[in-house]
Design a protein around this nucleic acid. Structure first.
Lengths: 149, 149
DNA sequence: CAAATAGCCGACCGATTGACTCAACTTTTA
DNA sequence: TAAAAGTTGAGTCAATCGGTCGGCTATTTG
């Protein structure tokens, strides 16, 4: 049960873009620097996310990437699925076709457990938006500052 | 977020052994046949599970593997961890050391989400025992039979 | 218009790792 | 003593992952 680096990098990049929402386009290089990610690789991920409709971009000088929708309307689940495909712990419990069968089904109760796992994970990532992430970060930094006083 | 084939095979093998609990040792080949798993590969997994203390074995004619504890005392979580290591969606939220830090922590709220995911998955697999699995299968087959009447 | 900036595109690539096999050995029982 | 079955350690093989590169196109600014 691992989040791929794709999912990791993509969510981190979007977290970054959400924090800089409405500040105009942010170049890949800037995101890569702040989040310590390989720029050329990130390029691919952002392109995928653009094609999926979560990002928009502007070319040329002062260009870069920016969120195509407000942070409140983008969930982590959407991002993860865009770069990694459906959230499926095992082949016999696909998201699209939950009634798909596997040959062993009659004498297998594991399938139900994997389905529970899939639903639990989906529930979390599908209800967490980029705005939630921003809120949490702001709360954290505020807390940190008040401690320092 | 995938269950590896190791986890898949191991849990299926133990589901099988639980269904045949207290019937004496079951040879690898029998498990492999019933569950349609590669025998030589399964061999390795069962050995790991034995070393982890969940299985016992008997050599020679009429030998085989059997559960080292009653099905009620073995959880899916234990089996998964035995063959695949700790359930950790991403490096920065290890199970052993939940307070481990990552460099980006201050401006990252994703870590908390991945921790939620880890806990949700763990909760499911840690409270499901082999006995639960058996119960569910028995319920299913009973249901199936009553439908057929 | 030219030059610089920055996204777009597709190919490529090496290393890990995941899934699986094999040969040879030991133990046990019939 | 032969056959059955677990034990051990090594080896194979392909695919995927994580990442790079070259060169293109669009946009802006001087």
């Amino acid at each position: 049960m691992r989040i791929s680096t794709k999912g990791d990098y993509a969510t981190r990049a979007l977290q970054d873009l959400a924090l800089h929402y409405a500040e105009g386009p942010v170049p890949i290089e800037a995101i890569a620097q702040r989040q310590a990610l390989p720029a050329r690789y990130l390029e691919q991920l952002l392109l995928t996310l653009k094609r999926a409709g979560y990002l928009a971009s502007k070319r040329g000088v002062n260009g870069g990437y920016y969120l195509a929708k407000p942070p409140r309307e983008i969930t982590l689940g959407q991002v993860l699925r865009a770069v990694d495909g459906p959230i499926v712990p095992i082949f016999c419990v696909s998201e699209e076709n939950p009634r798909e069968h596997c040959s062993q089904e009659t004498f297998c109760a594991l399938r139900d457990v994997w389905a529970e796992v899939r639903d639990a994970v989906s529930a979390i990532v599908d209800h967490t938006t980029l705005a939630d992430i921003c809120d949490r970060i702001r709360a954290k930094t505020k807390e940190r500052i008040s401690y320092q006083i």
